[in-house]
Amino acid sequence: MQKRPLLAIALTAAAALALTGCSAGSSGSSTDDGKVRVVASTNVYGDIAHTIAGDAVEVTSIMSDPNQDPHSFEASAQSQLAISKADILIENGGGYDDFMETLRKGAKNSSQKVLNVVDISGKKPVDGELNEHVWYDFPTVAKFAGELTDALSAADPSQKSVFEKNAAAFTEKLDALEKKESDLKSRYAGEGAAITEPVPLYMLQAIGLEDKTPEDFSKAIEDGTDVSPAVLQQTLELFSNHTVKLLAYNEQTSGPETEKVLAAAKQAGVPVVPVTETLPSGKDYIGWMNANVDAVATALGE
């Protein structure tokens, strides 16, 4: 469903020239201290990397401020420098974080291992549309955890057993999340849900909920374009007609149309499930996703 790169890049010419001097011609190990360095596009993947790697690896997340609107994010010269020193790069892919590709090309570090999570997922566009928010899809995250464990083990074989043990514990928790989704699906499959953007759609679908939102509405919100009055009215009627059991509302990107939808849901007594694209402060990935699934369950009447 993604139509535009979600994150923009802003590097001044002077900073870019300075960083070219730092990174040009680098190959092989990115640093001389033996420390494995992982750089992730967002703190979602950074947290997963830290969970699996533990203290044996240095992990940096390019976008880590939970109050940052992902649509207006600007990568800095410091981000370029971090990428130039990375041994493993984690990007979402699917057009979500194209800034990583640009920064990676500027880093000129040919030995880096790049993990593209959309590629790892195996998901393909359907009718030209791809929902790139794959971190809400637990089977994809499990695949990514396996690929990351292999990459970390190759980078530091002495810690392989630690990485594998941590990954096994993480995957077990993902299995528990999938079980929660399956239990909810057995009771609520076919119920309607509304979204402002397709951020949590993989989770809602795993629970068996049907997205009733007019596609032109969520597409316009994600693309940052205007919603036609007719489409907005169709969306508002989902709540006044009680067609949906809940509204999944992206708190990190809002505007006049989404605020009207939020108000309509509240007025109709339809539960609102707030969602975000990046990890909230004080949460780890598993805790965050447990809270999201539990919020959906509560909204459904559990």
Rank of each mutant, 00 (worst) to 15 (best):
267 Q>W: 09
18 A>H: 03
172 E>Q: 02
148 L>G: 00
36 V>P: 00
6 L>N: 04
267 Q>Y: 07
196 T>C: 13
83 I>D: 00
147 E>M: 00
191 E>F: 15
161 S>L: 02
298 T>P: 11
89 L>S: 12
255 G>W: 00
119 D>T: 14
257 E>M: 12
171 T>H: 07
38 V>H: 01
102 T>L: 02
185 K>R: 14
15 A>G: 10
128 G>E: 07
270 V>A: 04
133 H>D: 07
16 A>S: 15
28 G>W: 03
163 F>S: 03
62 I>M: 08
292 N>R: 12
94 G>E: 11
236 L>I: 13
21 G>Q: 13
206 A>K: 14
283 K>V: 02
270 V>R: 03
225 T>P: 02
33 D>C: 01
261 V>S: 04
273 V>Y: 09
290 N>E: 15
79 S>R: 11
296 V>H: 02
217 F>I: 12
289 M>C: 09
70 P>G: 03
79 S>F: 08
165 K>V: 09
300 L>K: 06
261 V>A: 08
94 G>W: 11
49 A>C: 07
118 V>F: 03
253 T>I: 14
284 D>V: 01
219 K>E: 15
166 N>V: 02
76 S>C: 02
158 S>P: 01
135 W>Y: 15
268 A>M: 03
227 V>Q: 00
302 E>V: 05
206 A>Q: 08
4 R>I: 13
255 G>C: 04
63 M>I: 10
201 L>V: 12
31 T>A: 07
249 Y>D: 06
109 N>V: 06
112 Q>I: 06
102 T>W: 05
108 K>A: 14
27 S>F: 13
92 N>G: 09
283 K>W: 05
116 N>Q: 06
93 G>I: 14
265 A>I: 01
153 S>I: 02
284 D>H: 00
136 Y>H: 08
185 K>W: 01
42 T>K: 03
66 P>M: 04
73 F>E: 11
260 K>N: 07
30 S>K: 06
128 G>I: 02
112 Q>M: 04
173 K>E: 13
157 P>V: 01
241 N>P: 10
123 K>S: 05
239 F>A: 07
183 D>R: 06
238 L>E: 12
209 L>C: 05
8 A>S: 15
75 A>T: 15
31 T>Q: 05
57 V>H: 12
76 S>W: 07
231 V>C: 05
290 N>S: 15
58 E>L: 11
218 S>R: 14
53 A>M: 09
53 A>L: 08
65 D>S: 11
120 I>E: 00
249 Y>E: 01
47 D>A: 06
54 G>D: 04
227 V>G: 02
182 S>I: 00
183 D>W: 09
232 L>M: 14
210 E>M: 12
38 V>Y: 03
298 T>K: 15
8 A>H: 13
39 V>R: 05
12 T>N: 03
293 V>Q: 09
44 V>T: 13
247 L>K: 11
232 L>R: 03
160 K>C: 01
231 V>M: 09
245 K>V: 11
219 K>I: 06
1 M>W: 11
157 P>D: 00
261 V>T: 12
61 S>Y: 01
9 I>T: 15
281 S>R: 13
252 Q>V: 10
115 L>E: 00
144 F>Y: 04
215 E>Q: 15
293 V>S: 03
244 V>Q: 05
251 E>K: 04
203 M>T: 15
48 I>K: 06
212 K>D: 04
280 P>V: 14
48 I>M: 03
84 S>W: 06
